[in-house]
């Protein structure tokens, strides 16, 4: 009985963790494959889905495939501008929702939730319907993509900043005012520095959402090609290995930012 019990307990302790790690592995297999394929030399083969030989060629000649780097650049430009606008508007809105009472505040909270709960295909086609009925059907491009991206990033920014702001101890601002800081000094010396990590996280999230979006973008892009649309286009005929290089770079940059941030906060608060 005792032995059985202990075996059962051991399994309970470690099986769950092992299963969890297996799930993580499942999540990482495709990324590992992407990394591996970025070193694949498939110049002698028409089959793009098998690893032939190791080469640095893809990394050394990233921009070789026609139009790919232009598409990446376009995605970066859209990502940065949509992030900038969505982060500013979203932060202002988060302050309004947490710090102020106004008419329609609760319906605003619901409307913010909806874009996150709607299928992208529906949002994308709605926006297309609007553009077409407003006579912009023939002028789809960077501007309409930008508009769409700000729209779906806004909700995520508002929710992220709101959470940070709501978790802020109101006593800190009172303490600042008690210590001779005027309203504006209190904001810039205490409120803003404390909310900033939330704003930064929101911006990072915005950029990756924007950079990666395909469904909504594809419906509203017209002839403009973003990086995901480029990948979609070439997927039918066989993708150049350089796409994997871009995927790997994105992953490493994001990982560096997240890990760097984690280490920075840990150094600040080892307790």
């Amino acid at each position: 009985m005792n032995v059985l019990h202990r075996v059962g307990r051991w399994i309970g302790e470690h099986l769950v963790l092992a299963a969890g790690v297996l799930v993580l592995v499942y999540m990482f297999v495709p990324i590992a494959v992407v990394m591996l394929m970025s070193f694949n030399d498939n110049s002698k083969s028409r089959n793009v889905y098998a690893f032939r030989d190791f080469t640095w060629h893809n990394w050394a000649n990233v921009c070789q495939p026609d139009g790919m780097c232009e598409a990446v650049l376009r995605s970066v430009v859209i990502g940065l501008s949509a992030t900038l606008v969505a982060t500013i508007l979203g932060t202002l809105a988060a302050f309004a929702l947490v710090r102020h009472r106004f008419l329609g505040r609760s319906s605003m909270n619901t409307i913010i939730f909806l874009p996150m709960a709607s299928p992208e295909i529906v949002m994308g086609s709605s926006l297309l319907a609007l553009f077409v009925s407003a006579g912009f059907g023939g002028r789809l491009g960077m501007v309409t993509i930008f508009i769409a991206h700000v729209m779906f990033c806004l909700s995520f920014v508002i929710v992220t900043v709101k959470a940070r702001l709501a978790g802020l101890d109101g006593n800190l601002e009172e303490a600042a005012m008690d210590l001779y800081a005027s309203e504006s000094t209190t904001f810039w010396r205490v409120t803003f520095p404390l909310v900033f990590p939330g704003i930064a996280a929101a911006a990072l999230l915005s950029f990756s959402l924007s950079f990666d979006d395909f469904i909504i973008t594809n419906l509203n892009a017209g002839q403009t090609v973003t990086f995901p649309m480029y990948v979609w286009g070439v997927a039918q005929r066989g993708i150049p290995m350089q796409v994997n290089v871009i995927g790997t770079i994105m992953f490493l940059v994001a990982l560096a930012i997240v890990v760097g941030n984690m280490l920075a906060t840990r150094r600040k608060q080892p307790a």
């Binding site: 990324i31 871009i246 995927g247 994001a254």
Partner: peptide, 9 residues
């Protein structure tokens, strides 16, 4: 982390 690598890729 996978969030930050292209969905399509």
């Amino acid at each position: 982390a996978p969030f930050f690598t292209s969905f399509l890729v």
